[in-house]
């Protein structure tokens, strides 16, 4: 009986296992394989020479990698600060009104990311929705904020907002009300309560939200393209042009592999330190 049950577990896990193997692990190996091939080859049958990594170093591709990580980090920090009060309200204050916010945020996700970003692009461009009307009504004008890095951060924060908000709200709901009241009763100021009680106890939610936004932002393509207009080159741009315009698969693979490696490293360290079971509803 025991053996049957354990085999059932394996059998029911088999479909997803096969899917993961074919759609997730295999491409990763292909990418890793191409990354060590000589430049501009299209087969994995060559002798590896690791020349792509030399190219990355010589031609300064690491700069766009750092740029990507920096923008992703900034997006994560901004989103955390912006989402905390709202998430707090959703978890502790709004009560039944929370469902309205949840629906409002989820509804946004129904519209494709690209369309929403185009919307912002049209709104913010010179002669666009905002500046155009302002000029025609008041004669005043301003330079478009498009095509610079802050607007890319804005775009990413806008698109990845739900990925921070919901885990954060979930995390904050883990903070017992009594713990907060007790801290206040023992003389803690609201700031102290935030940093010493609420944030540590909501850590699993903070971690999940931050990792999601960071990983998604680091690999984001559309924001830099549509709002940044290629004036800011992020790593994903380099990857794309290596695979398409430059027809240099090994270089693109090596760049991808670097991003995957660094992000994985940045993610695994915090994940190993935080009890994710807590956010999945199991008791600590």
């Amino acid at each position: 009986m025991q053996r049957l049950e354990s085999r059932l577990g394996f059998l029911s896990g088999l479909p997803i296992l096969i899917l993961l193997l074919l759609a997730f692990i295999m491409p990763l190996f292909v990418v890793a394989g191409f990354a060590i091939m000589p430049q501009k080859v299209f087969e994995l049958t060559h002798l590896p020479d690791f020349s792509s990594f030399a190219v990355i170093w010589e031609q300064g591709y690491y700069r766009s990698l750092l740029r990507s990580l920096g923008l992703a980090f900034l997006t994560t920090v901004i989103l955390f600060i912006v989402c905390w009060p709202l998430a707090y309200g959703m978890a502790k204050v709004f009560g039944r009104f929370t469902i309205v916010i949840t629906l409002a945020v989820v509804l946004i996700l129904f519209v494709s990311e690209n369309i929403r970003l185009f919307g912002w692009s049209l709104s913010l461009m010179k002669g666009g929705l905002i500046e155009g009307y302002l000029r025609s009504w008041t004669g005043l004008s301003f330079e478009t904020p498009l095509y610079d890095w802050p607007v890319i951060v804005f775009g990413m924060a806008y698109v990845y907002f739900p990925f921070m908000l919901f885990p954060l709200a979930q995390g904050i709901s883990l903070v017992p009300d009594d713990a907060r009241l007790a801290a206040s009763d023992l003389g803690a100021s609201p700031a102290r309560i935030l940093f010493e009680i609420e944030m540590p106890l909501a850590a699993p939610g903070i971690m999940v939200g931050s990792l999601l936004t960071f990983v998604l932002s680091a690999g984001a393509v559309a924001e830099a393209k549509l709002l940044g207009g290629r004036s800011v080159v992020v790593l994903t741009d380099d990857v794309e042009s290596a695979f398409t315009f430059a027809q240099n698969w090994p270089l693109g693979s090596a760049l991808s592999l670097m991003l995957i490696g660094i992000v994985a490293l940045l993610v695994l360290v915090p994940v190993s330190r935080v009890n994710l079971d807590a956010i999945m509803g199991r008791k600590r």
């Binding site: 007790a182 009763d185 003389g187 100021s189």
Partner: peptide
């Protein structure tokens, strides 16, 4: 509450886990 010289032992104890 945080200025009062009173202290409560909660039913849940409210220890910081």
């Amino acid at each position: 509450a945080n200025k009062r010289p009173t202290c409560m032992v909660f039913q849940s104890l409210a220890l910081f886990p």
